[in-house]
Simulated scan of single mutants.
Amino acid sequence: MVDELKPVPPSKRWGQMPRHYWPDDAQWMSAKLGTLDPSLRAEVCAAYAKAYLEAWQAEPLSYRRHGKARFAANTRLRVFIGKRFAVFNR
């Protein structure tokens, strides 16, 4: 069986979301992305999808692809949001 990366259909998304992500992460991502301005959210969604796709393509073992992609993209989003709002947590 060939493991293909397919985009999540717009009807299954929670607001503006990245083109590629794991559906189980939708609620968490929506909460994180909801803290951003709409213009910045579009850029962050594009960066998230790019990180997911790059990590997915870089993993040679098909059964590890989605896990590696989720980890890379979610870590990138978490770190970005953490740095963006670190000033408010002082």
Results as ranks from 00 to 15, higher is better:
Pro18Met: 11
Lys83Phe: 13
Ser39Ala: 15
Gly67Glu: 05
Phe85Tyr: 13
Glu43Asn: 04
Ala46Lys: 13
Arg13Leu: 10
Val44Met: 03
Arg70Pro: 10
Lys68Arg: 15
Ala31Pro: 04
Tyr52Met: 01
Trp56Gly: 00
Ala26Thr: 08
Lys6Pro: 00
Arg78Val: 08
Lys6Cys: 08
Ala26Asn: 01
Trp22Gly: 11
Trp14Thr: 10
Gly67Lys: 02
Asp24Arg: 14
Gly34Met: 02
Ala47Trp: 12
Lys50Cys: 02
Pro38Cys: 11
Gly82Glu: 13
Met1Cys: 15
Trp28Asp: 10
Lys6Val: 14
Ala55Ile: 06
Gly67Arg: 00
Arg41Ile: 10
Val8Lys: 11
Arg90Tyr: 14
Trp22Tyr: 13
Ala26Ser: 06
Val87Thr: 14
Ala86Asp: 13
Arg84Asn: 12
Ile81Lys: 06
Ser30Gly: 15
Leu61Thr: 12
Val79Pro: 06
Met17Leu: 01
Lys12Gln: 12
Asp25Lys: 02
Ala69Trp: 03
Ser62Leu: 10
Leu77Ser: 01
Cys45Ile: 03
Glu4Pro: 08
Tyr48Phe: 08
Pro18Leu: 06
Val2Ala: 14
Val44His: 00
Ala47Gly: 12
Phe71Gly: 04
Cys45Arg: 04
Ala26Lys: 08
Pro23Ala: 03
Arg64Lys: 15
Ala26Phe: 04
Ser62Tyr: 00
Glu43Pro: 01
Cys45Thr: 09
Phe71Gln: 05
Gln57Ile: 11
Arg19Tyr: 06
Arg84Leu: 15
Tyr21Lys: 11
Phe88Asn: 15
Phe88Lys: 14
Thr75Phe: 13
Pro23Met: 10
Lys6Leu: 13
Arg70Glu: 06
Ala73Lys: 09
Gly15Tyr: 06
Pro10His: 02
Phe71Ile: 04
Pro10Asp: 14
Asn89Gly: 13
Met17Gln: 10
Cys45Trp: 07
Asp37Gln: 15
Ala42Asp: 04
Val79Asp: 14
Glu4Tyr: 13
Trp28Glu: 11
Ala55Asp: 04
Leu77Ala: 04
Ala26Leu: 09
Asp37Trp: 06
Arg13Lys: 13
Val44Leu: 05
Gly82Leu: 03
Arg19Gly: 00
Tyr52Phe: 09
Glu4Ser: 14
Trp28His: 07
Arg84Phe: 14
Glu59Trp: 04
Arg90Gln: 12
Ser30Phe: 03
Arg19Asn: 10
Val44Ile: 07
Thr75Lys: 14
Leu33Pro: 01
Ala72Pro: 01
Ser62Gln: 11
Asp25Val: 01
Lys12Tyr: 00
Tyr48Arg: 01
Met29Ile: 03
Gln27Pro: 08
His20Trp: 11
Arg13Val: 07
Ala51Phe: 08
Ser62Ala: 12
Gly15Phe: 12
Arg65Asn: 07
Ala46Asn: 09
Arg65Thr: 05
Ala86Ile: 09
Met1Val: 15
Thr35Met: 15
Tyr63Phe: 14
Lys6Thr: 12
Val44Arg: 05
Ala42Met: 02
Gln16Asn: 13
Arg70Lys: 09
Glu4Asn: 07
Glu43Trp: 00
Asp37Pro: 03
Pro60Ser: 00
Pro7Tyr: 07
Ser62Gly: 03
Val8Glu: 05
Leu33His: 01
Arg70His: 00
Glu4Phe: 11
Ala86Lys: 15
Trp14Gly: 01
Tyr21Arg: 10
Trp22His: 10
Pro60Phe: 05
Ala49Arg: 05
Ala55Val: 07
His20Leu: 02
